[in-house]
């Protein structure tokens, strides 16, 4: 391992990591919004919309992100929808993550027995009050482990972005290996940077999971 090479590569990886983090966070946030919307549609059983959401979830969960990105980036321009790589990456991640988040929230909602809502209603709460004060706090805490797993999964999936020529960590590593053949250094930094990004999230996730359980809500 050559220290001079590491030093030379470091700024490049830093820049790439920032891009990955930026797009990753944006994608995760949009996935959460999409997931909440889909879970609400399914919970409220809105006709038609419910079917569309179901089809979307199955399509998104049963196909890899790589082909989703290829379709958005190379396929859609042929019918006039052109996106730049960053928008494409976030759109792809949201398309994938929305369904995973929806499933996490839905399983949380489904785990709450109907008697909870019935009791809330019989106490004179409105449906909205019951949802906000009784159902959601319990459902969300049940969803936490799946939610945390999804966040980590989505951040890892950003490594596919390099396929649509986004200058992320993967792209940088591949580029440097191709240019200078300093394979060991390039791969070492790749692993280090992914660890720096993912370990804190993973640790934070397990702390949150414990906190939620400690509060006596979850399973």
């Amino acid at each position: 391992m050559n220290a001079a090479v590491l030093q030379e590569y470091l700024p490049l990886y830093g820049k790439a990591a920032l891009l990955t983090i930026r797009l990753g966070i944006l994608g995760v946030l949009l996935s959460i919004l999409t997931g909440l919307f889909c879970a609400a549609v399914q919970y409220l059983k809105i006709p038609l919309l419910k079917t569309i959401v179901r089809v979307y979830i199955e399509l998104s969960r049963n196909t890899p992100l790589l082909i989703q990105l290829f379709f958005i980036y190379y396929g859609l321009p042929k019918i006039g929808i052109r996106t730049d790589p960053a928008v494409c990456g976030v759109a792809g991640l949201t398309f994938l993550g929305g369904s995973y988040m929806a499933e996490a929230f839905r399983s949380g909602l489904e785990s709450i027995p109907p008697i909870q809502e019935e009791s809330a209603l019989s106490l004179g709460m409105t449906r909205i009050q019951a949802a906000v004060h009784v159902i959601l706090p319990q459902a969300l805490s049940v969803s936490v482990p799946a939610f945390v797993a999804n966040v980590i999964f989505l951040l890892k999936e950003t490594s596919v972005f390099s396929a649509v020529s986004l200058m992320d960590l993967m792209f940088t590593a591949k580029d440097l290996i191709g240019l200078y053949y300093d394979t060991t250094e390039a791969l070492f930094l790749l692993v280090v940077f992914y660890l720096l990004m993912l370990l804190p999230v993973s640790i934070l996730g397990s702390i949150i999971e414990k906190k939620v359980r400690y509060a006596g809500f979850g399973t």
């Binding site: 890892k156 993967m170 290996i177 791969l187 790749l190 992914y194 370990l199």
Partner: peptide
């Protein structure tokens, strides 16, 4: 914790 793509690179190039 490692993206599978990183693992592929590690084994293939490493």
């Amino acid at each position: 914790i490692m993206p599978q793509m990183v693992l592929l690179f590690l084994v293939f190039f490493g």
